[in-house]
C-alpha cells in the first residue's frame, strides 16, 4: 500500500517509493537520503513541518514537501 508521508502518524514507518515534487526539490531530497527504498519513521506530524527519522538522523520537512513523498507501507 502506498501513502503520502503527510498521511502517516507519529511512530509509523515506510519506505520511499517516489517523490512527486519538482526536479530540484526531488533531487535534493534524494541526495539527503530520501532515495528509493529509504526507510523513514515519523517522529512528529501535527502542526508545522513534519519531523522524520532517516538513517538515524532527524530531518524536518515542510508540509507541502512532505505531501509529495510517497511511501510504501
Amino acid at each position: 500500500m502506498t501513502k503520502g508521508l503527510l498521511a502517516l502518524k507519529n511512530g509509523d514507518t515506510g519506505k520511499v517509493k517516489s517523490i512527486q515534487a519538482g526536479r530540484t526539490a526531488t533531487k535534493r531530497l534524494y541526495e539527503m537520503g530520501f532515495n528509493t527504498g529509504a526507510p523513514v519513521k515519523i517522529i512528529k506530524n501535527d502542526s508545522g513541518p513534519v519531523i522524520v527519522y532517516l538513517n538515524g538522523c532527524k530531518v524536518a520537512l515542510g508540509r507541502g514537501l512532505a505531501e509529495k513523498i510517497i511511501l510504501d507501507i
Binding site: 515534487a21 526539490a25 535534493r28 531530497l29 539527503m32 513541518p49 519531523i51 538522523c57 532527524k58 530531518v59 524536518a60 520537512l61 515542510g62 507541502g64 514537501l65
Partner: peptide
C-alpha cells in the same frame, strides 16, 4: 521555497 532541514542532536 520548500523547507528541508537536518535537526542535529
Amino acid at each position: 521555497s520548500y523547507f528541508i532541514m537536518e535537526l542535529p542532536p
